[in-house]
Design a protein around this nucleic acid. Structure first.
Lengths: 205, 205
DNA sequence: AATAGAATACCGCATATGAGGTATGTATTT
DNA sequence: AAATACATACCTCATATGCGGTATTCTATT
């Protein structure tokens, strides 16, 4: 028996979800919450196997709620349920610790399958979400930097200084500096730290 | 009709896969390759809808092969097929541009479903892979840094210097320096750039 | 009561760095 | 043939940074 808790402010949706889950053998939904504030103590207390969490809640957001729940109980499995497909919402949810991400138009059969999958150690995602997630690993193909500049940036990211970079690339320290200045200009940054950050954020290296 | 190409050096597996695909209405496998070297020109020429790619190939690896194919044709969908579940293989594949990642014990029905899903814009993954991928977004909970040090590191990552950090956190520049020195010690680095890199790599911020 | 860790603050020194320049040769594109 | 981007090299200067210290206060934990 998989025990599911639901956090959803739309009472119609909440009821529908609860009916689907409770009406299926092997699934049980004992607790539903209308907001994150009441869900947190409740969920920590009753320890459901899987939590269905709406992203857009009044007051504290579903994402914040996930963060707080995961701090208390990192092993807890939480499945995000939302209509939002924008990158920020998705990745913020995942960084908060969500174990899956379903769009609200997911049909009941798929929802139940996903809950079961989470319970069994999986991480179900709606099709378009999965694609976005996988694509996020790809390095940027549109880099403003030349090949040589990318070399330099890579070394900078590894913590090298002018002297060692110059030695490794068989050029003078002056040249390294010039390259780095051009890199700064192209990336619109003005320090090493910012350049390293941008390199990682934009997957330039 | 979904046209599938297979790159797989084990001829038994290759034949089995081809039979499954060709034996299913709506699927067709016209081309199979035993190694990456011959697969690249072939695939670029015949433009299949989906490529099934073994990770462990003799000579050029499946991952390298994906990289090269994606450079030529970024829109191409490639589904990795492997027995390996180690993080490096998974994430290297994804960074190379794989559109999905299936374990070799995947049953035929699931395989066909996954090929279809890739074709329709999804990104199918085996259960344990999906979990690893989602977990990779989570910030590390095991940080050696104190809260204050994490604050400082965050500012450093944003490209601030001592003076502005000191102002924003209402402490002296000297204190910022002391914190940063402690951060370097704890992270085993000795420059800002390395610290920023480590912060992003280990998801400390 | 003692100890350890964290956060705060300061000093000094040698070197690295960012920002402002100029310049030359090559390769590619128009 | 001209223009553009790239890689290379050098100069100066003010400031930032890394590294070596010391020290006080507060808060946990033992």
């Amino acid at each position: 028996m998989i025990h599911v808790a639901i956090v959803e402010d739309d009472l119609d949706i909440q009821r529908t979800l609860a009916l689907i889950i409770d009406g299926t053998p092997g699934f049980s939904c004992m607790y539903t919450y209308n907001d994150a504030e009441s869900a947190i103590p409740g969920i920590l207390d009753y320890k459901p196997d899987v939590v269905l969490m709406d992203v857009n809640l009044p007051g504290m957001s579903g994402i914040e709620c996930v963060k707080k729940l995961k701090v208390e109980r990192p092993e807890m499995d939480i499945l995000m349920l939302t209509i939002r497909t924008d990158d920020d919402t998705i990745f913020d949810s995942l960084c908060a610790g969500a174990t899956g991400y379903l769009l609200k138009h997911t049909p009941p059969v798929q929802l139940l399958k996903s809950v079961k999958e989470v319970f069994e150690g999986g991480a179900p995602m709606s099709m378009e979400i999965a694609r976005k997630v996988l694509t996020s690993f790809r390095p940027s193909i549109y880099t403003p930097l030349s090949e040589r500049e990318t070399d330099i940036l890579r070394k900078i990211c590894e913590g090298h200084n002018y002297k060692t970079i110059a030695e490794e690339l068989f050029i003078s320290g002056h040249t390294v500096r010039t390259h780095l200045k051009n890199i700064y200009k192209k990336l619109h940054v003005n320090s090493r730290a910012e350049a390293v950050k941008k390199a990682y954020k934009n997957k330039l290296i």
